[in-house]
């Protein structure tokens, strides 16, 4: 798989806004940005209210995903181009999530909403009407998703990449710097994890760094690119960004996203935790 298969430029996107068979999807936790203005013809997906189970901490099930995509007017053979705010965190999460449920033609808009805005490209408020489809999902591909026991077993065995900021990794902060810090769980990181903040993989304008740069960043951080890898952050969206860089851009075979991430791990009774900076 090449970079062009999974990542499209803002210029390409602008040329393909009306192309049949291509559906642009804006994904965010807070969808008020979409409501104020979005890429023309893009539909919105609400990360919290549409992709998460309303009661349990888990994803919507297969039938729920089928219903969601059918209502959004997305068909199995459509090419879905995902983008969003926060440097594409939630769009990358949706990319990984669509992949879990077996959607085949998927692309991420390089730079996301930020690059689109910084380039002064057009945003509209008109919401497209797409006819309902009968979407059929596959069972979750669990080769892409790590669960807590697997993370504990991976300590000192597999690559574990903690993609949070250095202060979250060290245990000084429990959340990113734009959020208040109160939280229930213990601070720190999974023993043997290396800290490669997600932002290392991105340029200032939100685009991904080149494959050569990415390879250098992860290798210098101490990752053995031939070993299986688990990525995590606080709730699994920043680590989806890194999962995308490792699995989709660099083409590593065995990379899982641990969506339970620190909010789960840091609340588990009895699991080992380390604090302090990257060794």
């Amino acid at each position: 798989m090449s970079r062009e298969d999974v990542l499209v430029s803002t210029a390409w996107a602008e040329e393909n806004l009306d192309t049949p068979g291509i559906v642009f999807v804006e994904v965010d936790e807070d969808t008020s940005a979409y409501d104020k203005g979005h890429i023309r013809n893009a539909v919105k997906i609400d990360w919290k209210n549409e992709l998460q189970d309303p009661v349990r901490r888990d994803f919507v099930d297969k039938a729920g995903f089928e219903k969601l995509l059918s209502e959004k007017g997305i068909a199995n053979d459509d090419t879905v181009v995902l983008y969003g705010g926060n440097n594409n965190w939630f769009a990358a999460y949706a990319y990984w999530y669509f992949k879990l449920y077996g959607h085949e033609k998927l692309k991420l808009l390089d730079g996301g909403r930020k690059k689109w805005e910084l380039e002064g490209r057009e945003l509209v408020t008109e919401v497209p009407q797409r006819p309902q489809t009968s979407y059929v999902a596959k069972e979750q591909d669990l080769s892409l998703r790590a669960f807590r026991d697997e993370v504990v077993e991976a300590i000192n065995q597999k690559n574990i990449v903690d993609v949070r900021s250095p202060d979250e990794f060290a245990g000084k902060l429990l959340a990113p710097a734009h959020l208040p810090q109160e939280s229930a769980q213990r601070p720190g990181h999974v023993p043997s994890a290396v800290n490669v903040p997600w932002a290392k993989a991105a340029n200032e304008d939100g685009t991904f760094k080149s494959n050569e740069e990415l390879k250098q960043i992860y290798t210098e951080a101490g990752l053995d690119l031939n070993k299986p890898t688990i990525a995590y952050c606080r709730i699994g969206e920043r680590s989806s960004h890194t999962w995308f860089a490792l699995h989709e851009l660099l083409g590593l075979q065995d990379v899982k996203n641990y969506d339970g991430s620190w909010t789960e791990y840091g609340s588990l009774v009895g699991v080992p935790i380390e604090t302090g900076a990257n060794s």
Binding site: D28, E29, G85, W89, F90, H178, E182, S183, A184
Partner: peptide
């Protein structure tokens, strides 16, 4: 008071910070 641990990491909508803003012991 603690924030919900399963709430997302997205940056919240930004607003004015008054001089008497309660920093809750934070920088």
């Amino acid at each position: 008071m603690s924030v919900q641990v399963d709430s997302g990491c997205a940056a919240p909508a930004q607003e004015a910070t008054p001089d008497d803003f309660d920093t809750r012991g934070q920088v």
